[in-house]
Design a protein around this nucleic acid. Structure first.
Length: 121
RNA sequence: CGAGUAAGCCAGGCAGCCGCGGGAAGAAGACCGCAAGGUGCUUCUCGAGGAAAGUCCGAGCUCCGCAGGGCAGGGUGCUGGGUAACGCCCAGUGAGGGUGACCUUAAGGCCAGUGCCACAGAAAAUAUACCGCCCGGCACUAAAAUGCCGGGUAAGGAUGCAACGGUGCGGUAAGAGCGCACCAGGGGCCGGGAGACCGGCCCGCUAGGUAAACCCCACCCGGAGCAAGACCAAAUAGGAGGGGGAUGAGGUUGCCCGCCGACUCCUCGGGUUAGGUCGCUUGAGAUACCAGGCAACUGGUAUCCGAGAUAGAUGGCUGCUGCUUCUCCGGUUUGUAUAAACCGGGAAGAACAGAACUCGGCUUAUGCGUUUGCUCGGUUC
RNA sequence: CGGGGCGUAGCGCAGUUUGGUAGCGCACUUGGUUUGGGACCAAGGGGUCGUAGGUUCGAAUCCUAUCGCCCCGA
C-alpha cells in the first residue's frame, strides 16, 4: 500500500480527523489561504479543504479547491512525509491562478519548515 | 441600410502530458476494518447545464395504524383542448397598447349580505335632498321685489376618480325617457358557433365604484419528505425522579365525529463512529423517419444507453487554430482630405454558471454569439 | 429538504392590522446662552419606504415576481 499511496492524493474525510488537526496542529497564513498542519504518524501526507460559503458560490468554491489541489500535488513531492494538512481559503483566493497558487503554497511550507531539505539540516 | 418584432440554434475546436469519479471484463489472492464492507492492479468505456440555479407550482417514488364524513384552512378562476398532473402549454373570445409585424391581460359574481369611498362638495347611495327654478295662497305694496306657508321639479349649482344614463331637438308653468334621433348599458326573441361570444330585431327597462375588501359560487387539495425509507454490522443503554392513562394515552397541519387500541409525557443523567450497503439511475428516456391534428400533443417503427459524487468526481498545464474588438504598428487600394476596405503583426476579450432521489413546467441570470420569417422607415434600380 | 423573520433619513426604530399627513430618538446645520467648550433653548435641512410590475381615484401599507441579509428544524 505505501507504494500506491505515495503517488495518489490522500484526503482528510472524517470529522474527528479535522478536529485533531485544528486542535493539535500549527498554522501558517498567507494572503489567500490559511494552512493547518500536524504530524499524523503515517508514511504519507493527507490534505483536507475548507472553503466557507462567504468566499463565493459553488462554482467559485469548486474552482479554488481544484486549483489548490493541483498545486498541492506539485508541492507535495518536495515535502517531508507524515503530515495532515487543512487548507482554508480566504476571500482573495477567488482570483488566484494555478502558478500563483503553487508559489504561495511552496512559500508557506518553507515558512513552516516542512520542506524535505530543511528537515535534513 | 436603419429601427423593430417573433421563433429557433450554439455554449469555440483539435492535439499532447499529468490527475479525479463511475461501469464492464480480467488477473491477483496483497492491504485497511472488530465486522458489515471497502481499497488497490491491467484493459476497454463513459463523465455537467440551458438554465444543473432560485425552490415558485405539479407529479413519480417512499413511509406514516389505507387517509371515511363535517367544519376550518389553503389554492385556482373567460372558453375549448393537450397532459400522469399543474397555477404549465396550445388554439380561440373579450378588453387594453402599438402606424404595423405583434404584445399584454388574477378576465366568475357587488339586482346573497356586510364594509369602505380621505379632502372637496348640497349630496358618495333608503334622495321625506340644501341652494335654485316654477305654480298657488297670505303679509306688505300703486306694481314689482322681498318674507312666510303649501305644492311641483331634478334642467343649473366654484366640487370630485366617480353625481341615480350622455348629446341634440321637441315638449312644459318649470321640468323629467315625458316623446323622438344617435350613442352607452340592461332585458327578451331569433340566427350562427362545441363554447367563451358574435350578429340582427324589439322593449324607455336606466342599474355608481371597489371582491389583488370581507365574502358568495364552481372546481381541486390527507400528511411528510431520499437526513423519505429498507437491510446489515458493531457498540451502548434497558437508569433515576415526577405526572397522566381502558372514565381513552398516543396516532398523521387545527377542531368535532368515525377508525386503530397500550403505553406515554416532562426533567436529570448516559450514548450519538452522522458505520456499511441498497434506494441511485432504463426513464411520462434520447435520436431519426412515418401518420393524425391549425397547434400544444398523440400513435407507430427502427436504433441507442447519455453523470451518479457523499469533506462531495467531471480538473490543471501546454501548443496550434477559428471568432470579435482596438486613441497600437506596418503595407496595398479608393479618395483633394477626414476616412473606408483588405492583408500581416501585436494586445485584449469570450458570459451566466456546477448535477446531490428523478421527471414536467415556471421564474431569474447570461454572450454587442448566431440563423430564419415578418413589419415600419429611408435610398437605389 | 422544510420553515420563519427583516429591509423606511447617516445610525437605531415606529407607522403596514383598518390604503389618503411618512414620524420618534441620536447624529448634522444655523442662531442664542458662555470668556471659550460641553450641556441646555429655539429654528431648520435630509427619506427612490430593497427593486420591478399590477389592483385602486390614490400604495410604505393590498397582490405578484425578484434581490439581499439573518435565524431555526430534520
Amino acid at each position: 500500500m505505501p507504494e500506491a499511496a505515495e503517488m495518489a492524493l490522500n484526503r482528510l474525510k472524517k470529522s474527528w480527523e479535522f478536529k485533531r488537526v485544528y486542535r493539535y496542529g500549527r498554522t501558517v497564513v498567507s494572503r489567500n489561504i490559511v494552512l493547518y498542519y500536524c504530524p499524523n504518524g503515517l508514511a504519507y501526507n493527507r490534505i483536507g479543504f475548507s472553503i466557507s460559503k462567504k468566499v463565493g458560490k459553488s462554482v467559485v468554491r469548486n474552482r479554488i479547491r481544484r486549483i489548490y489541489r493541483e498545486a498541492f500535488m506539485v508541492v507535495e513531492k518536495q515535502l517531508s512525509k507524515g503530515y495532515d494538512f487543512i487548507l482554508i481559503a480566504r476571500k482573495p483566493a477567488v482570483d488566484v491562478s494555478f502558478h500563483e497558487a503553487c508559489k504561495e503554497l511552496y512559500n508557506l511550507c518553507r515558512k513552516g519548515q516542512l520542506l524535505l531539505k530543511q528537515k535534513q539540516k
